[in-house]
Each structure stands twice: as C-alpha cells, then as structure tokens.
C-alpha cells in the first residue's frame, strides 16, 4: 500500500467499516434497519458510552482510569441503598451517586497526583478497593425493594422519578440516550474547543512542555479524574435506574467495554488520540455489531471475542505506520 492509501485507511477506515456493517445488517436482517431498532441500539450503548466519555477524558492527559467500571458498580449500590435501605428520595440518590463518583475520583487523584503512583496501577488498586467496598456495604447481597435487613424488610424502594431515568422516554427517545448525547456534545466541546481541553491534551502530549508553558499539570490531571469519576457516576445512576435494583457486580462489564470504545475511538478520522467523537463512534460500533449479530442469531458467547477482534483491528489502524498525528 502506498503511504496515501495507509493515510486514507487510518482516517476513514473505521467509519467505512461501520457504514458497511450497517448496510449489510440492514440487508440481511430487515428488522435491523428500523427506527425502533436504532433506538434499541442507542439505548444499549448509552451507559457504556457515558462511562467511555469519562475514560476518554482520563486518557487525554496520558492517564488511564481503570476504576471506571468499579465506580459504576459502586454508584449502583450507593443509589440503591439510598432509596431502598434509607428510604430517601430519588434526587438524594442522584446526589449520593455523584458524590460516590467524586470519592472514587478523589482516591485516584490522591494516588496518582499526590502519591505519584503510575496511573495504570493506581487506578487498578482503586478498582479493587471499590469493587470490594460495594460488597462490604451490602454484605455481598443485591439490594432490592423488600429485601430483609436485620430481620425486618427494607423500608424503601426505587422511586418512580428515578426509574424514569433508566426506562423513560422523551418523545420516543429513551432518557439514557438523551443523557449520552448531551454528555457527548459537552465533552466534545470541552476537549476540542476550550482552553482546559487544550491543556489536557498538552499534558498528554508532553507534560514537561506543558508545565514549562505555565500549565498546572497536577490540577489538570486531577480534573481529568474528577470528570472521569463523574461520568462513571452518571453511568452508574442510569444503570441503577434501568435495573431497578442494586445488583452485585453490575458495573463489572463496563470497564472493558468503555475502554474498548475509547481505544477504538483513537482510530476514528485519524485522530490517534483520545477524542469524544471517536469514543461515540466506538461505542456505537460495539452496539451495532452486537445488535446485528444477535439478529443474525449469533450466540451471545461470541460477543466478547468479536469485541476483542474489533478492538485489536482498531489498535492496528491507529498505531501501525503512525507518522502523522492529528494537529491541534
């Protein structure tokens, strides 16, 4: 292949594959290409997408938030406990969930920025801590309305308003999809068109150059983790609302899927770096593929392998022959 062809593949390869996949699935499975199914696909990727946007921000500075999935699970538990065990309102549960996300982010910041532990291992530690904490606060049980706590039934249950966040619609569009869309647009503008986003990318590109240009590197790295924690918290709230209960380990699959979405996003439009648009495409990619394969009656247990293949393919596209990177 000529250099030009390589550049074209790097830039548009993934988008072309996504469009081709849409076309093939629509032809083979007529139920695929409908408005209703599109909403189903979007609904299925909304939580992953929201979490992945946070992971994307954490990656911009050269960090990596491995605790995102654990944060989702922890927030699911916190919101469930707030409503079921303590019989508080849905609004309180949302606030408690966001605070839980900030706590996770705070630990990440303490470890990476203050204690200077490398990001990957620090957030791996945080992941274990909060997976474990979610088990401790619920004694290892799922939290649902009517469960017994110390011999008596739990006083509360999921409020209607809170459940609406997971299952409600505006017009015909599910609420999680709207949240995902709004958050995606916000993160896109934040990363690409604000000075804070520019500073984050500068740190990811050359932290020393950023520091000497007068950028307070520690603060921005902390900010990135806070945004990542908040996104994971929003994801956890949406997931909790959709489940209607606090399932043990509910957040676990979200780490790998969101990291995959963010990494696939590197390959979108030749960005070669974490970016919001790419992450959205990456999340959609995963959703479309799983939805399409399900319609073609591919067994569920092939999904993980297919996602893995997709991720590996995208990584090759964005890292191989890496010469020109996106200029800002």
């Amino acid at each position: 292949m000529t250099a030009r062809a390589v550049a074209l593949v790097q830039r548009y390869g993934l988008v072309v594959v996504l469009v081709a996949m849409l076309a093939v699935f629509s032809l083979v499975a007529p139920a695929f290409g409908t408005y209703g199914n599109a909403l189903i696909v979007l609904q299925s990727v909304a939580v992953v997408g929201v979490v992945a946007l946070g992971v994307t921000v954490s990656m911009t500075t050269g960090g990596f938030d491995l605790s995102a999935g654990a944060c989702v699970g922890f927030v699911v538990m916190v919101t469930a406990l707030t409503m079921v065990r303590f019989n508080l309102t849905g609004g309180t549960a949302i606030v408690a969930g966001l605070i839980a996300g900030l706590v996770v982010a705070g630990i990440n910041v303490l470890l990476t920025v203050v204690a200077k532990v490398p990001d990957l291992v620090a957030t791996l530690g945080t992941m274990f801590l909060f997976q474990g904490l979610a088990l401790i606060v619920t004694s290892g049980q799922s939290v649902s309305a009517g469960m017994t706590i110390g011999g008596s039934p739990a006083p509360g249950r999921y409020t209607g308003g809170f459940v609406w966040l997971g299952g409600g619609t505006v017009g015909s569009v599910p609420v999680p999809v709207i949240v995902f869309a709004v958050l995606a647009a916000t993160v896109f503008v934040f990363l690409n068109h604000t000075r804070w986003g520019r500073a984050l990318y500068a740190i990811g590109g050359n932290a020393e150059a950023a520091r000497l240009a007068g950028i307070r590197v520690g603060r921005y790295r902390a900010t990135a983790y806070v945004i990542s924690g908040l996104c994971a918290a929003v994801g956890g709230i949406l997931l909790s609302a959709r489940l209607g209960r606090g399932d043990v380990g509910a957040g676990d699959p979200y780490l790998l899927q969101s990291v995959a979405a963010a990494l696939i996003g590197f390959a979108v439009l030749g960005a070669n770096r974490p970016n919001a648009l790419g992450t959205v495409v990456g999340a959609l990619f995963i959703g479309v593929m799983i939805n399409g394969l399900t319609m073609l009656n591919a067994p569920y247990y092939t999904q993980t392998f297919v996602q893995g293949a997709l991720l590996v393919g995208s990584l090759v596209v964005s890292y191989t022959g890496r010469r020109e990177r996106k200029t800002t």
Binding site: R198, A199, Y201, G205, N206, A209, A213, N272, R325, T328
Partner: peptide, 19 residues
C-alpha cells in the same frame, strides 16, 4: 523534550502559554 508537543501545529505551540 521541554517545549514541543508531538503532532501539534505552530499555532497550538504559539498559544499554549497564553490559552
């Protein structure tokens, strides 16, 4: 090592200290 951010344009380098 201390001033260049790989992949960035002249413009982005000029404006980095004064975003």
């Amino acid at each position: 090592a201390q001033a260049i951010v790989p992949g960035w344009s002249v413009r982005a380098h000029v404006t980095l200290p004064r975003l």
